[in-house]
């Protein structure tokens, strides 16, 4: 059996971490799948999906370190007018952070719950906000 839902999120900063764990757990609980695998997948190229500990200091360190590794004002090539968009690009830091973070996370599902470690939560990493974002939660199992 496969169960799928889409989560819509409007992010509020240019870079931030948004804890999505409760929403994903609720989707898993109502999926009627007790054993299987849950995939959480971003539909974007300037976001990331990461698993980490839900502590404010850890969240801040992740955001700050990404900003240090990939500064906003480096000499990126993707900083020009894009004819195919009729708009300017100028969001290379978002693309690069997204590449580093990856666009999906996977969990085992057992007894209709995410089988996650005690320190594990799921975060959407916004790398080019504020924007509307769509995240797919797909659960496969029985």
């Amino acid at each position: 059996m496969i169960y799928s839902e889409k989560i819509s999120i409007f992010t509020h900063k240019s870079a931030e971490l948004i804890n999505m764990t409760a929403e994903i757990e609720s989707i898993v609980a109502k999926s009627c799948i007790s054993n299987g695998v849950a995939f959480v997948i971003s539909q974007h190229t300037t976001t990331g999906l990461v698993i980490n500990e839900p502590l404010e200091c850890v969240e801040q360190d992740i955001v700050n370190t990404l900003a240090k590794l990939i500064p906003d004002d480096d000499a990126y090539i993707h900083a020009h007018f894009l004819p195919s968009y009729g708009a300017t690009s100028n969001n290379s830091p978002g693309h690069l952070k997204s590449t580093m973070l990856g666009n999906s996370v996977t969990f085992s599902v057992s007894d209709s719950k995410l089988e996650k470690g005690s320190a594990q939560d799921v975060y959407l990493a916004e790398c080019d906000g504020p924007q509307s974002r769509q995240i797919i939660v797909k659960i496969m199992g029985e």
């Binding site: 509020h12 968009y85 009729g86 504020p130």
Partner: peptide, 21 residues
């Protein structure tokens, strides 16, 4: 006619938020 692509309509709440931001 305006030569812009790959964007979608957005609600007033988001437009105003972006202005506030």
């Amino acid at each position: 006619k305006f030569g812009i692509h790959k964007q979608s309509p957005y609600p007033m709440e988001e437009i105003l938020y972006e202005m506030d931001y």
